[in-house]
Design a protein around this nucleic acid. Structure first.
Length: 554
DNA sequence: ACACCCTTCAGAGTAGAACT
DNA sequence: AGTTCTACTCTGAAGGGTGT
């Protein structure tokens, strides 16, 4: 079957996917391109393509009567679908306008525009770049891509590919690492069907738990995973960990992952970082805590709730606190300034959380040991940080190695390693989970004991739920403060200024400035354009936060 | 701290229309 | 013919997100 007949029949199948990707190989490397292609090929179809359209709906701008949204209010109406319904009921033609997605060879930000009227032929021409550039708004077509495809092909690559091309191939660090790598990459995971089966559930889950930008991001990510679910790891330059390049199950949030592959069992080294350092830095408090089977997160949470109020003791608050502690500990280990960590704790929780954290004997001991360690090596700098992270990541892999060994020596494939998560694994048991799981746990625990690391493998309960975006201590600036545990601390910084398109009609201020060109040895004129709308928006935002600041300076 | 990916922004350069 | 203005292309950097 050819693409043309498939289009005629308006059918969707895996074979059609293959047909399209065979003819337009670029689509493989740029899934949104393919999704948009399919969306346009099947404008009225149901089922799978309707799902696709739903995923991208919020990103497709409507442009009727040859005009695009002129201001934010219009854009919001477009996005809400209200405008679309109005047009439909009036029986007006609807064209799609997308920005930046149809040119897989350019950078993601290239404002390539396509206005499609006759869908199939326009798509074909657009994909093959047969259309000559047409500028101006009046024409019926359609594609402005600057230089022809053939000229551009050699010079530009899709960002992912370009990065891959310039990236240095790094060999595995050790035979052990090489063996793990081979095992991870040669495991058949049969993800294609599983991810497809659960795609609808994932869409529902994401729509139910996220909103706004994050929802779109997650939905698109989910679509990518369904498109090409396989996972391949590779060694990287500055760490013993192995990463996968594209978006995959390994890089999506754990709650979404659990919806995607509900059958996988996740195992995790308990307090991996802390236990490795307990051995390497000889931390007595930490060792005592870990060997007694206690959890630092629980201790900190209990202490905090005891000091604040027992009424706060709900599962949600406990979950949130756990996340906050988990973010704070690596910061301490990797040499972040205590003031910054304290500020983060105050921001995400409150002063009591900071006090409880720093007063805990394990944290205090860790802090002292950290300062000693970095002090011996000439202070906290990029070099020493790298050294530390390499040391830790090597030990992590060593600790998990028995799982790889067991998998390799297994006679019948009862289970396989779904994901390698640096300090844990996701395992899919096809059968005999009851007998295999304890054996795996025992092997790893025995290995940890032999290495002198006071940790153990624990099975992560699948009940963990989404509890808001992760705390990050890096981006906090002085002066930010929180009250209690905020339900939502996300603060959009740029608002909607970014929606303006290159040829919009919003007023601009042009600032001309002179610069000295050292190559040409002469003064040149440089211009800088600022959108008035952007400035106004920024000023409004600033006025909300700090009323005194606006008006003093131009 | 280390990775990964994606989007936006500002600047530099360029083509062509409009103007002098 | 030269100048100015505008829209457009392309790039690297920055900053957003994620994982451990």
């Amino acid at each position: 079957m050819t693409i043309e007949t498939a289009i005629k029949r308006r059918t969707w199948s895996q074979s059609f996917y293959t047909l399209v990707t065979d003819r337009y190989p670029a689509a493989k490397h740029h899934p949104p391109y393919l999704r948009a292609l399919l969306d346009l090929l099947f404008p009225n179809s149901e089922g799978e393509c309707a799902q696709v359209r739903e995923v991208y709906r919020e990103r497709i701008f409507l442009w009727a009567h040859g005009r695009r949204p002129r201001n934010i209010a219009e854009l919001d109406r477009f996005n809400s679908g209200e405008f679309l319904n109005e047009l439909r009921s009036a029986g007006l033609p609807i064209n799609y306008f997308t920005r930046g997605w149809f040119d897989p060879l350019s950078c993601s930000s290239a404002p390539t525009k396509i206005i499609l009227e006759k869908m199939p032929s326009a798509i074909r021409r657009a994909a093959l770049r047969e259309v000559k550039p047409v500028t101006g708004m009046e024409g019926r077509v359609y594609v402005t891509t600057g230089k022809p495809y053939t000229e551009r092909r050699d010079r530009y690559l899709y960002t992912g590919e370009r990065k891959a091309a310039t990236q240095v191939e790094v060999p595995a660090r050790s035979p052990l690492a090489q063996e793990c790598l081979d095992t991870f990459n040669s495991t058949p995971r049969r993800l294609f069907l599983v991810t497809r089966e659960n795609h609808q559930a994932v869409i529902d889950y994401i729509t139910g738990t996220r909103d706004g930008d994050e929802r779109i991001r997650r939905l698109v990510e989910a679509q990518r995973i369904v498109d090409s679910p396989e996972i391949f790891y590779r060694p990287v330059e500055n760490s013993a960990r192995m990463y996968c390049r594209k978006s995959s199950l390994a890089s999506c949030p754990s709650d979404v992952r659990r919806t995607f592959v509900p059958d996988w069992t996740e195992v995790d080294l308990k307090h991996a970082h802390l236990s490795i350092l307990a051995r390497d830095w000889n931390l007595k408090e930490a060792r005592a805590l870990l060997e007694s089977g206690g959890s630092l997160w629980d201790e900190l949470t209990n202490e905090y709730l005891y000091k604040v109020s027992a009424e706060w003791d709900t599962p949600e608050v406990r979950d949130r606190l756990r996340q906050i502690w988990k973010a704070a500990l690596p910061s301490i280990i990797y040499g972040q300034h205590t003031v910054d960590v304290a500020r983060g704790l105050v921001y995400y929780a409150d002063h009591m959380a900071a006090a409880v954290f720093f007063q805990h004997p394990v944290v205090a001991e860790l802090l002292a040991a950290r300062d000693d360690w970095f002090g011996e090596r000439g202070g906290i700098n990029a070099q020493t940080k790298l050294e530390l992270s390499e040391k830790i990541s090597e030990t992590e892999l060593e600790l998990l190695y028995p799982i790889v060994q067991m998998f390799r020596d297994m006679k019948r494939p009862d289970w396989h390693i779904g994901l390698y998560q640096y300090d844990g694994c996701s395992i899919h048991f096809a059968r005999r989970k009851e007998s295999w799981l304890p054996r795996i746990v025992n092997a790893v625990n025995e290995n940890a004991r032999r290495l002198g690391v006071p940790t153990s493998l624990e099975v992560v309960p699948l009940t963990t739920e989404y509890s808001g975006p992760k705390p990050s201590f890096k981006k906090l600036r002085p002066g930010q403060s929180g009250k209690g545990i905020p339900a939502d601390f996300r603060r959009p910084l740029h608002g909607f200024a970014s929606y303006t398109t290159p040829c919009d009609r919003t007023p601009k201020i042009t600032v001309t400035k002179w610069r000295y060109d050292h190559k040409e040895n002469k003064w040149c004129r440089g211009t800088r354009k600022i959108r008035l709308a952007t400035i106004q928006h920024d000023l409004e935002e600033l006025a909300k936060v700090n009323p005194g600041a606006v008006g003093k300076d131009e």
